[in-house]
Amino acid sequence: MKQITDFILVEKNDYGRSVLLRLRSDRALPEIQPGQFVQVRVDGSPSTYLRRPISIHDVDFQHNEIALLVQQVGEGTKHLAVAETGDVINMVLPLGNGFSIPEKGEKCLLVGGGIGIAPLFYFAKVLVENDIRPTLLLGGKTKSDIIRLADYQQLGDTFVTTEDGSLGEKGFVTMHSLWQKEVFDKIYVCGPKPMMKAVAKLAAEKNVWCEVSLENLMACGLGACLCCVEDTVDGHMCVCKEGPVFNTRRLKW
């Protein structure tokens, strides 16, 4: 069941362009699938009138805590980045449909680009809890985009690309040598649309099942306003309600 809940910012870590926010509520968290998202009420200023959809980076059910990894890209995320511990932040959660959980024994590759690495953390954690050790491929423009690398490495074999070559292999995620060496049963992707399209194309060439997580501009987050639609084989579908995770076979890419 979805809820509207006030959270208190209990911890904040700065990663340059991004911040990691740990938010706690005194209310039990609902069930949350990896890949689902929250709608954050930023501060109600005229320039942040609507809520902001943010993917769920991590969940701690024991302490009713949600972690969000937020990159400063627009007004909303900039305002969120200056929140201070003790601030109350209202969120609607959990929204959308998450990643499909694979069968035991299937080899999974999780590909994140830029801030798109955020939801893969909780996803990898849930996979590990299900006795599936994923492989992770994280891409960024530069070294500082690869946030919490050591923590990702705890969850699975983790490979990195950066466009400037400052960490891991130089180039885009689609150029990593891993693609020549390994074969996967399922590929999951979150990142900028051009990057997701490139990975989806690669997956299609290899005839591998692939899911992507989209982030179209949205207003309600509940499937009511029909603003965030993506073209699919079934017509215009709301990313907030039918997605954000879609199997690439359904998308008209």
């Binding site: 005229p46 320039s47 009138y49 609507l50 179209n216 501009l217 949205m218 207003a219 306003c225 029909l226 603003c227 965030c228 639609v229 993506e230 073209d231 017509g235 215009h236």
Partner: peptide, 19 residues
């Protein structure tokens, strides 16, 4: 089918839609 994406733009204390 409605209009193509993008269908929404936030404006000061409001929003535009062209669903």
């Amino acid at each position: 089918e409605g209009n193509p994406y993008p269908r929404m733009a936030e404006t000061p204390s409001g929003m535009l839609n062209c669903v």
